[in-house]
Amino acid sequence: MNIVWQETTIHTKIYFRERQAVFWGFVFPLLLLFLFCSIFGGTPERSSSLVAGLICINVMAGALFGTGVITVGAREQGILRRYKMAPVSPWKIVTGMVVSRYVSITLATLLMLVLARLVYHITLPSNIPAALLVYSTGAVMFSALAFVVASLARSLAEANGVSQALFMPMMFLSGATFPFEFMPAWLQKIAHVMPSTYYVSALKTVMAAGGGIKECSLDLTVMAVVTLLAVMVSARFFKWE
């Protein structure tokens, strides 16, 4: 446990020392917030629903690029190999990396919520435990999916490409940016294959409608299953060098 805590602190330090990471993790989401809410916002309810989508985008980007791609980069440079020399369980190190990314994404999310509340008067979730559960389930799911990419990608370029290819459609088709209702039926079908769709739906439920766990139990179940599969695949295929 001490090691997990230590790795979490170390990776959080590394994150905040990289200016680029802080820009994409903190500044960019806020720019998107102002852009989306000033174009599509209008009412606090609409803004609230947009914020739910932005949270999903932020979590996806943080996990795929911040955890997955960075891990492949560290492997390509031989950084991960050094850990194999020490009598330490690799999974403690991975957990530390994932938790640290969770911390930084959560800080960015909270900042976004506060600003959206102040500027666009969005409704804040009333059922805090349910909101936390939904938020964290999605964060864990995307971290696990990021490790699937890291396990299967053979190079940094490949990891980057695959992450982009997953990120783009999930960003545009899962209801995170455009409301679902505007999409043709066939696109909606595609959207329902994407895990992000369930995340956005659950986030909207706990944020806008003030709903609880019961209202999004289907979304949560889908996300739990995807997470389980992703963990199994990465545990089987992940390589340290």
Partner: peptide
């Protein structure tokens, strides 16, 4: 104790932090 043929570390760590990190594993 092992020194690999090529060694890389995370860029934004300090020398003393890397040493403390690896020392904690033993």
């Amino acid at each position: 104790g092992v020194q690999l043929q090529s060694s890389s570390f995370f860029r934004k760590l300090r020398v003393v932090e890397v040493l403390k990190q690896f020392r904690s594993y033993y």
